[in-house]
Design a protein around this nucleic acid. Structure first.
Length: 102
DNA sequence: CAACTGACTGCCG
DNA sequence: CCGGCAGCCAGTT
């Protein structure tokens, strides 16, 4: 799945204490709107330990953690990064959404 | 080969 | 902001 490498590259560019949505990653990776593929790529990444990819910094466009495996783990990692997570596993994108300004 | 499912998103209300 | 519906791609059954 070398095609997904673009997705991993974008996710790695997310700075600590910041989060991004699947759709954003898809656009930045050149997939344009195909957000589901991003989730697929991250899923595969979890199974195969490649380089360190901060998959936990990726949430849906509502700021809600849609992780189907270890949502509690993702929440813990985000809090460790300094991100404030709501009791309902939700994040305030107004302040934590990464705009990829480089 | 067709149908189903899934770490999603945009549009409507 | 939340819930529902449709569209999208890839992997399974």
């Amino acid at each position: 799945m070398q095609s997904y490498e673009a997705i991993y590259a974008v996710v790695r560019q997310i700075p600590p204490g910041r989060v991004s949505s699947y759709g954003r990653i898809a656009i930045l990776a050149g997939f344009g709107g195909q957000a589901r593929l991003v989730g697929y790529a991250l899923h595969a990444l979890r199974l195969s330990s490649e380089d360190e990819v901060p998959w936990w910094r990726v949430v849906n466009h509502r700021g809600l953690i849609t992780n189907a495996y270890e949502p509690a783990l993702q929440r813990a990692l985000l809090e460790a990064e300094g991100v404030v997570v709501d009791a309902n596993d939700r994040i305030d994108l107004r302040d934590y959404l990464w705009d990829a300004i480089l």
